[in-house]
Design a protein around this nucleic acid. Structure first.
Lengths: 130, 130
DNA sequence: TTCGATATTCGACGATCATCGAACACCGAG
DNA sequence: CTCGGTGTTCGATGATCGTCGAATATCGAA
């Protein structure tokens, strides 16, 4: 399917272990970081990682089922965004903390965020505004 | 081996994904919660879960390699404790957040921590503005 | 030293997972 | 309607994981 409406579970039904498992995979964590780097949505096609499309779709499904991301359909295309609001409500501080932990790694090795994200990285202590 | 000194990696060499993977397993998360519930150490034998000893040993090894727990030997016995200090230094807020997320679940189904679980965990309220 | 208790390691088994290419379903454009 | 572009689903494959019982290593006690 090019862009059919997908299932997005209410966060109440999602367990912590599910979220942690979703984040505990390098590729998926990278995707989440990409999404967090730019506020708002990101086009499916703009998520370019060295993996097959079917694999990306698979990872996005897992992130979706964990309640971490959300996909919106517009014509043929699909836009992904972080459900940080919902996640923060169910697991306060979790996403922010994980992302702030990863800031260093982000700045170092990974290109994907080489764009404007530069100035980000506020002291992790403070609640990252997301 | 009854109680040989085990390897405890410096937290600097531990990646976030490793820690998340260690926590993203129900049994291991339960162990971490048990350890967090009581400050200080916990005797190996006091960790009674419906699993084989070899399985418990396996999980503890993974938690050790993730830098989450630490084992001390005293004679034949072995005492496990959370490395919360080291973890907080490397991944500020991570362990606290994960544990606080789990409090509800803890209070409900699981007896192990019925005690006072000394209050760590700062109010996560912290305002993810989103 | 011998024995029992304690924890780790060693296969082994079944289940789950990440990955891929191919087939499929959907949409807009021609 | 027919195409080409876009995500998703469907096996299949190889790797990793959780689990166990048995074997092993280490210590204290008899």
């Amino acid at each position: 399917m090019a862009a059919r409406e997908q299932h997005h579970p209410p966060l109440d039904g999602v367990e912590l272990v599910t979220v942690l498992a979703a984040l505990a995979e390098p590729t998926r964590l990278k995707i989440v970081r990409m999404l967090a780097a730019r506020d708002g949505e990101r086009a499916w096609k703009d998520i370019d990682l060295p993996i097959a499309q079917s694999t990306l779709s698979h990872h996005l499904k897992i992130l979706r089922n964990a309640g971490l991301v959300q996909s919106r359909t517009e014509g043929t295309r699909c836009f992904i965004s972080l459900r940080d609001g919902d996640v923060s409500e169910r697991f306060p501080g979790l996403l922010e903390t994980v992302l702030s932990c990863e800031r260093g790694v982000l700045a170092c090795g990974d290109a994907t965020a080489a764009d404007g994200d530069a100035g980000a990285v506020p002291p992790p202590s403070a609640a990252p505004s997301v």
